[in-house]
Amino acid sequence: MKWVYVVAGIALYIKMLVFPDLAMDAADLPAVESVVQDSGVPNAVSGLIFRNRLYDTIFEVVVFTIAIMGVRFLLSDEQPSRIVYQFTDHPSIVLARLGATIAALISIELAIRGHLSPGGGFAAGVAGGTAIGLVAITSSSEWMEAIYQRWHASVWEKVSVLIFIVLAVLTLIGMELPHGELGTLVSGGWMPLLNILVAVKVALGSWAAILLFIRYRGLL
């Protein structure tokens, strides 16, 4: 039975390579120019995600939130691991802190200029999560947990999702801010705000995931 699968897969592989692609005539349309014209931001991918495909992006954010909540729910009856082995030597701590600083700065840059240059909310959130993860592997998990609790990070995560949904619904029913001048920092209507909200959401969500996995499984 296994060999049937393998032969079918190889046949599919050869078929995909030998036969020509399906029609790609639509490529003649100047997609970038029309999207930039519609959305008022130079980054056409951001324009697509937060304007043409906004309905899809709402549910993407919702799915991400629910997945993190599911991780928390499934892990809630586990026994936390007693000893968490951390990096304790000085060079790794300094290097991790340096990397975390750089990643955090990059995250802010990607979030606020995501509609002008490569980047955007999701990339910014992942950079922020990387920064938090680098701090988490070198400092004690109780301390990280205390910071997470003190700043009510989980509440902020949910609040940013809710604000994102409200802003997205406002955009979908047609209430848009003026586009402003193309290519400046404050332009493109809601788009910079949506970028920042998604960045906050993804960074805090990945912080929650990192924290849960370290608490219940340790680093190794």
Binding site: G47, N52, R53, F64, I68, L74, L75, V126, G205, Y216
Partner: peptide, 28 residues
């Protein structure tokens, strides 16, 4: 073409969250 790039950005984030969920399921 910006359209396929925008479409697949969704899959990257969803892939990350689905993976976290699957790993927890495997742990259980």
């Amino acid at each position: 073409d910006p359209v396929p790039q925008a479409v697949i950005l969704t899959a990257i984030v969803i892939g990350f969250s689905i993976q976290a969920l699957m790993l927890v399921g495997a742990m259980k």
